[in-house]
Simulated assay, not measured.
Amino acid sequence: MNYQLPETGFLRLSQIIGNPKADPPIPAIIPVKKTTWWNGVKSGIYPKPVKLSPRVTAWRVEDIRKFINATNSEG
């Protein structure tokens, strides 16, 4: 992974699953499609989001890092 995660803070969905249509393109940290991501959140595979406002959903960097580390240690 070439993307450097910040120590703390929040990530929006496009920062996690990437957005090749953005200018400049956003590389995926976890390369899955949006539907796969949300299904994984509902089933407990992926971390739960935090509602920052009625229209803004984000994930804690610490939760994403923990998920990545757990996934890497399994393989």
Rank of each mutant, 00 (worst) to 15 (best):
M1V: 08
M1N: 06
Y3E: 12
Y3D: 07
Y3R: 15
Q4G: 03
L5N: 03
E7I: 09
T8G: 04
T8I: 07
F10W: 12
F10V: 12
F10N: 07
R12M: 10
L13C: 15
L13V: 15
S14W: 04
Q15T: 12
I16Y: 02
I17P: 00
I17Y: 01
G18C: 08
G18S: 08
N19G: 03
K21A: 14
A22F: 05
A22Q: 07
D23T: 15
D23P: 00
D23M: 14
D23L: 14
P24C: 10
P24N: 12
P24K: 13
P25Q: 07
P25F: 02
I26M: 10
P27Y: 00
A28S: 14
I30E: 00
I30R: 00
I30Q: 00
P31I: 02
P31Q: 09
V32T: 03
V32A: 04
V32L: 05
K33W: 03
T35N: 08
T36D: 05
T36V: 12
W37K: 04
W38H: 03
N39W: 01
G40C: 02
G40Y: 01
V41M: 08
S43I: 11
S43K: 14
G44I: 08
I45N: 04
Y46A: 02
Y46L: 04
P47W: 01
K48Y: 06
P49D: 12
V50N: 07
V50F: 06
V50I: 15
K51D: 06
L52M: 13
L52K: 12
L52Y: 07
P54E: 09
R55V: 05
V56N: 09
V56P: 01
T57D: 04
A58D: 06
A58I: 05
R60S: 09
V61S: 05
V61M: 06
V61H: 03
E62T: 13
D63A: 13
D63Q: 11
D63G: 06
D63K: 07
D63H: 11
I64D: 00
K66N: 11
K66H: 11
F67P: 01
F67A: 06
N69F: 05
N69D: 14
A70K: 14
A70Q: 14
A70M: 09
A70Y: 10
A70N: 13
T71M: 09
S73M: 14
S73H: 14
E74G: 04
E74Q: 10
G75A: 11
G75K: 14
